[in-house]
Amino acid sequence: MKEILKEIEERFGPIWERVQRPKLAQVGIEPAKAVPLLTWLKEHRGYVTLVHLSAVDWIEQGEFQLTWLLGNPETEERLMICSRIDRENPAAETVSGLWPQAVTYEQEINEMFGVSFPGSPRQGVPFILEGWKDIPPMRRDFDTVAFVEKHIPGREGRKHIDTRTYIGEKFGEKGYLHD
């Protein structure tokens, strides 16, 4: 995997990389160069399979990370191409022209994270969420628990005890500076 990483570095400029396993490596690259790199890998280096496309919300850094997982069926090697995009108005180039199945992945990420892939055919079309009005649910600032409490009724008669409070009560925790 060392050679291909070296070659990517030479051709596409500064990247960060990590070999995770003998046949699996990770490459980080700036968004503008991601699709040119993917195209080159597919056309010239045998990475013809798009195994997966996923997203991660790095809310603290104000970024989304997109990861395209490519496979080379001949060598059985895999490459994860990662790229960080701005969390404000997030958008990325579509790869649906290279791999038709990317349409579905891009539709899903569009719905779950609110990342748009301009030009990808099914953007804005509900994937599994019908009539969703909230912020995209896989964003980390989406309050899942609050949503669940509101929309999915728990069984009646449920009673949760907060451990912290319970222990204070049971063991006679007291304060002396405030009444």
Partner: peptide, 21 residues
């Protein structure tokens, strides 16, 4: 639990090191 599926319920008396829940 993001689904608020879990309740802590008392099953024995609390002692040091075990809330009993």
């Amino acid at each position: 639990c993001q689904n608020a599926a879990i309740d802590m319920v008392p099953v024995k008396d609390p002692v040091k090191g075990d809330s009993g829940l």
